[in-house]
Design a protein around this nucleic acid. Structure first.
Lengths: 232, 232
DNA sequence: CGTAACCTTGATTAAGATCAATTCTCGTGG
DNA sequence: CCACGAGAATTGATCTTAATCAAGGTTACG
């Protein structure tokens, strides 16, 4: 792994080799096993992270102790940028904590910590980076917006939406076969439900002839009906 | 109304008089009656808004046609900044729409439209503004984060949380009296429920001796218990 | 005053959570 | 190679919360 991985991070795409190397040399790499935490939401804020390999889930803990997954971050994606811009002074004084919890969902997950001090310096010098960062935060806001919208619908709707999205994301060949890359438990948490309800909803979709399922592989047999459920 | 109102907007606080006047002279003021729309989420994006007077509610329409209020914007607050940073070219080509709906909740509500073209120009010239904007977007993200967290709890919890927050926001004198400044209907929508359930929850709180209610005025009689319900 | 919007209350229903067993799957060690 | 055990997934019965349906009652304002 070297500084070239940073070039794929949208926000850093405006930097030259020298700047990239500098960021890379000051960043802290971390390797994680499946289930290992990057941070808890109670920890003091150090800076934001770049995913280099594997996958990270960002989640809240509900009152009953259960996880509620907000999103997954894949390679070259970033997470925990937000506290960076909430009054710099407070960050320096360790007053800030992370906004949620972050855990690796795959073994051999690798992340880079970009410390806020260093990054803030960069931000002051390089105007382009702030503009990129504005783009990144906007994207995050769109995602949360979409997340909230999805939450207004029932579980079959949410699952249908997820399947359609996954189908679009993976490949794009018209064979409607999707591999669910996360555990069913994580999927349930992401959809805001529990394992049993997810299982029942999958079964209902199968009984209604919308999909066929074999372990982690789902074949969509009636994309039209599925789309109808997905969009209201 | 003149350009000095803009000085109170956090993002514009770094500008000098000349710059403020320029923004003001290029902005479009709009007066609204209670219930009038600023924009629908289907409309092409023109730019973001500053609230000068009154109050704006930002909301989504659910599948059944009901409103789901995401937040309220008060004087000197801004809304609809997000699409501004999602690929400038698309905005110019009218490809973008608003992320939600915006409606005045009070009569004599006044807003200013800051067109994206003008603002983007400003952003390129003035680095400080991007940094302020990063702060503004972060705040918005925090709010959505908090919103999502609240949604994981039941209705009594959400109402208790709302009452405690309102109590803190208004005054701060230790007489625990709160005026609910929005309609009960809007409050229900904000809490993600319906009028009947809100009414019943208020009743339950009264029966349990937590509050006393008279129209729009709520007196908190047992702040300790209310806090216990509010925080899990 | 009168009427429309706002609010409350009661009875019923439905979606999904909870509780409680099983069954399935797969990696590990004998 | 098989047997074991743990975690993952499924299934059924029951329970809870809040939505829905249906009246009434209250308030505010022209």
């Amino acid at each position: 792994m070297d500084s070239s991985v940073l070039r794929n991070v949208s926000m850093f795409s405006v930097l030259n080799d020298k700047e990239l190397s500098k960021i890379y040399s000051f960043s802290t790499p971390k390797s994680l096993d499946k289930g290992e935490m990057v941070f808890f939401e109670t920890e003091p804020y150090l800076g934001f992270y770049v995913v280099v390999e594997g996958c990270i889930k960002i989640f809240k803990i509900k009152g009953d102790g259960r996880e509620q997954i907000i999103h997954f971050v894949h390679p070259y994606g970033t997470f925990a940028e937000v506290p960076m811009f909430e009054q710099y002074e407070k960050i320096l004084n360790d007053q800030f904590t992370y906004p949620a919890n972050a855990m690796a969902t795959e073994k051999d997950t690798k992340v880079l910590l970009i410390r806020s001090g260093l990054f803030y310096e960069l931000l002051r010098k390089n105007h382009e980076i702030s503009l990129k960062m504005l783009g990144a935060l906007s994207k995050r806001l769109r995602h949360l917006n979409n997340y909230i919208e999805t939450r207004m619908k029932d579980i079959p709707h949410r699952l249908a939406e997820f399947l359609v999205q996954e189908c679009r994301r993976s490949g794009g060949s018209d064979i409607h076969k999707v591999e669910i890359e996360i555990t069913k438990h994580d999927l349930a948490s992401y959809l805001g439900t529990i394992d049993e309800t997810l299982s029942r909803t999958f079964k209902k979709f199968q009984d209604d002839g919308l999909i066929q399922m074999k372990g982690k592989f789902v074949t969509i047999t009636d994309i039209k009906k599925l789309l109808r459920i997905a969009e209201e």
